[in-house]
Design a protein around this nucleic acid. Structure first.
Length: 757
DNA sequence: GCGCCTTAGTTTTTT
DNA sequence: ACTAAGGCGC
């Protein structure tokens, strides 16, 4: 039965679906049915008889691609297995893998994630002796970002520096040299970073016209989602692939550009009609997602933008409450208030219809603890990746050296697990492997039984590899003793994580694909999908393109949202504004913004007063309902014309002693033991002092300070709560610094310590 | 020279 | 928690 597109789409959406030939640019406002349009167009192409394998769907995440495919399949009632879909990076690598001769690289290739690239960069910098002893010299992470930005924006390193960090211009020459060395190192070791994938594909297409023709013939219809977040090389790749036919549809929203920091170029979307002659421009402006009060707020956020966005979303969803602005005493009580809100919302909505969003991954830590304590399930997106954990990288490194023996980063991980082998030895061995220096290798194996064991294991793994899952399981078995030694406190948890990874690996037939996906996607995220019973926690970046009935947005204070790093440059601040716009437009029915009066900083000495976000300060009071936490922890609603924004005073009432302690300890899961809970409660009653920077916990210092301190022996001690620990320093003030296995460094009053004889 | 431990100083977003 | 740098011992 033919699909009745006309009844399911509005006129603009319908136009986008019906025009299947030639270039089309769809400017799609937030919530304007962009995905719906793409899905229907996909279905229509196939219903017209287009071979699914000739459709290429480039999206921001693979999750987005697979969601579109499954929705289109539902619509069509048939499978769309052949449609190519995924990120530019994944598509690029998959294409390169199919045409290894075109890459220009000899041998196998390994994709580096951020951590791997930092490793290489550290090696390159120290190898050149760059900035040695110079505190003003940028750190490897910064250098990596700088070089990546220069490649993505296609500017010289010096140009990037003069725009974004002119104080580093004196180092420009050294940094250019580092960039060269970094490139050479990667080439010599068969390593590709994220940027290389795109540029290598472009080079391959330009150098091999036959390959280009083949790909053009294959990908007759191209659709690109989130086009505003593409960079220059991505736009050129699309142009190359689209060819003369130009059957390309780009979908995007200039107001939602949030990836300029990694080189995305909003100009791409604006210049699309110029680059593709005869572009049909279609605007989707009606919002089907949010209620009008929510849109009033998001429109206001955009109105403050420096760049003009010719956009004013309107909705037919007239009703609904205004967004709420909740002023909490601290970020700790914010977490408690958010949990209460979630509990209330869960009575009306499925948990998966509720999302808590934040600017940076770490901003949800205290909320995660609170949710754990309440037994509320959640799924977190964004922030640290599972595959970036040290134990995962260690275990996977065994597979990597088997796949690509030139992968020096993986060799270093594998070999430094062996006692007495450090970076230098590991790299020497990696070089010997690459140059097939059997003599050196034999001598090393003879000298160190640990090395002998590793090599024997790797030979075994190489000779009878089996699938990725089988290989990983064997690697985990081999790695377990080292894991136990390295992480005596929590190796069971890490082992369980590796077991999970083996489960993920089962679905891969080829090692190379498994390793690539590990670097390109978050396999855990892909696998878990959406759980109905779990509230969603996500960074705003990872929330892009998604929607929820209720959205809670945390930490709307200067330095956090907008991020501290963005305050220096107007362009960065504008991106933060668009980020806030993206965050708020995720909400369908309810939107709650949290403004804590104080925020806790690990580095900056405990809790400090915070200023409501400048984006909040500039909002008209009529756009939201303001609620304020009272001393009892309840919320009161401020009457209209009551105290306005300016009167909000940051309060330093520390109601979060308990949370501070648990946050500090960094124990992510499980509940507190009753002994610990008692101690925490006690410390709250006794009015524990705010914490010492970096180390303190609520019960580390107490009001009465006994002892004169500064002396006393080092050695092992017992503590009522933390158990056995090692005294590493006597600090004076009657305090000592003690390292407790599993709890980390603490500053503790001597009177709470019992020294072991 | 090299491995390994200690100590001091920091956390943005993602492929 | 995680990195970089400095110190110690082989």
């Amino acid at each position: 039965m033919p699909i009745d597109f006309k009844s399911q789409l509005n006129p603009a959406q319908l136009e986008a679906v019906m025009v299947t030939d030639g270039p089309v640019l769809v400017i799609a406002g937030a919530g304007s049915g962009k995905t719906r349009t793409l899905v229907h167009r996909l279905a229509r192409l196939v219903s017209l008889g287009v071979d699914p394998t000739s459709i290429l769907l480039l999206t921001f995440t693979r999750k987005a691609a697979s969601e579109m495919l499954s929705r289109a399949e539902k619509l069509l009632g048939m499978a769309l297995g052949g449609v190519q879909g995924g990120t530019f990076h994944a598509f690029s690598f998959a294409t390169l893998r199919r045409h290894p001769q075109a890459t220009g690289y000899p041998g196998t290739l390994t994709i580096m994630d951020r951590g791997d690239a930092e490793e290489v960069m550290g090696h390159v910098i120290s190898g050149l002796g760059a900035g040695k002893g110079d505190k003003s010299f940028p750190k490897k992470g910064f250098v990596l970002e700088l070089i990546s930005k220069s490649r993505n924006k296609e500017l010289t390193v010096s140009d990037v520096l003069s725009r974004e960090a002119y104080q580093l211009l004196p180092h420009a020459t050294a940094l250019e040299e580092i960039a060269d060395e970094y490139r050479i190192y990667k080439e010599n070791h068969g390593l590709l970073d994220y940027d290389d994938m795109l540029f290598t594909l472009e080079r391959a297409l330009l150098a091999h016209p036959d390959l280009l023709e083949q790909l053009r013939a294959r990908h007759r219809y191209i659709m690109v989602d989130e086009y505003q977040d593409t960079n220059l090389v991505q736009a050129r790749l699309v142009k190359l692939l689209a060819g003369e036919a130009g059957n390309v549809m780009a979908v995007g929203d200039d107001a939602q550009s949030i990836y300029a920091f990694r080189g995305a170029n909003v100009e791409n979307i604006l210049s699309f009609p110029r680059i593709y002659q005869g572009t049909r421009l279609i605007r989707l402006e009606q919002n089907y997602r949010s209620t009008q009060p929510i849109l009033d707020l998001t429109n206001a956020i955009l109105r403050g933008a420096k760049d003009r966005f010719d956009k004013n979303l309107f909705s037919e969803r007239e009703g609904g409450p205004k967004p709420e602005l909740v002023k909490a005493y601290s970020d700790q009580t914010q977490a408690r208030l958010a949990v209460e809100k979630i509990r209330e919302l869960k009575r009306r909505y499925l948990a998966c219809e509720i999302a808590v969003l934040f600017r940076a991954g770490y901003q949800s830590y205290s909320l995660e603890l609170a949710l754990n304590k309440e037994g509320i399930a959640f799924q977190k997106f964004g922030g640290l990746r599972f595959s970036e954990a040290a134990h995962v990288k260690d275990a996977v490194a065994f597979l990597r050296v088997v796949h690509n023996p030139r992968d020096a980063v993986a060799w270093k991980r594998v070999l430094t697990l062996v006692d007495k082998v450090g970076e230098k030895t590991a790299l020497k061995i990696a070089v010997a492997v690459r140059d097939n220096d059997q003599g050196f290798l034999a001598a090393q194996r003879k000298k160190n039984p640990g090395l002998e064991a590793v090599f024997a294991f790797l030979e075994e793994l190489r000779s009878e590899p089996g699938g990725p899952a089988a290989m990983l399981e064997r690697a985990v078995v081999f790695y377990t003793p080292a894991l136990t030694r390295l992480h005596p406190e929590d190796y069971p948890r890490r082992l369980a994580g590796l077991e999970q990874l083996s489960q993920i690996a089962v679905s891969y037939a080829h090692l190379e694909a498994f390793l690539a996906d590990l670097a390109l996607e978050n396999p855990e995220e892909e696998r878990k999908g959406v759980r109905e019973d779990a509230v969603v926690l996500s960074t705003v970046h990872s929330a892009k393109g998604l929607e929820w009935a209720a959205v809670l947005l945390l930490d709307l204070v200067d330095d956090r949202f907008p991020s501290r790093h963005a305050l220096a440059r107007p362009e960065d601040l504008e991106e933060e504004r668009r980020l806030l716009y993206v965050a708020c437009t995720r909400a369908k029915d309810l939107l709650t913004l949290y403004v804590p009066g104080t925020v806790y900083n690990r580095a900056g000495g405990g809790s400090q007063p915070a200023m409501p976000s400048l984006f909040v300060r500039e909002l008209d009071r009529d756009l939201y309902t303001e609620m304020r936490e009272t001393f009892s922890g309840a919320l009161t609603r401020l009457g209209e014309g009551g105290m306005g924004n300016g009167s909000f005073q940051a309060r330093s009432v520390d109601m979060g002693g308990e949370m501070s302690g648990s946050f500090q300890d960094g124990i992510g899961t499980g509940s507190f033991s009753s002994a610990r809970r008692e101690a925490l409660a006690e410390s709250c009653r006794s009015g524990a002092q705010p914490l010492e920077p970096a180390f303190a916990s609520p019960f580390a210092s107490s009001p009465e300070s006994g002892g004169t301190g500064g002396n006393g022996p080092l050695g092992f001690c017992q503590h009522r709560i933390f158990g056995r620990g090692k005294v590493v320093a006597r600090l004076g003030d009657g305090k000592s610094r003690v390292n407790f296995p599993g709890f980390g460094m603490k500053v503790i009053l001597n009177e709470y310590l019992e020294m072991e004889p």
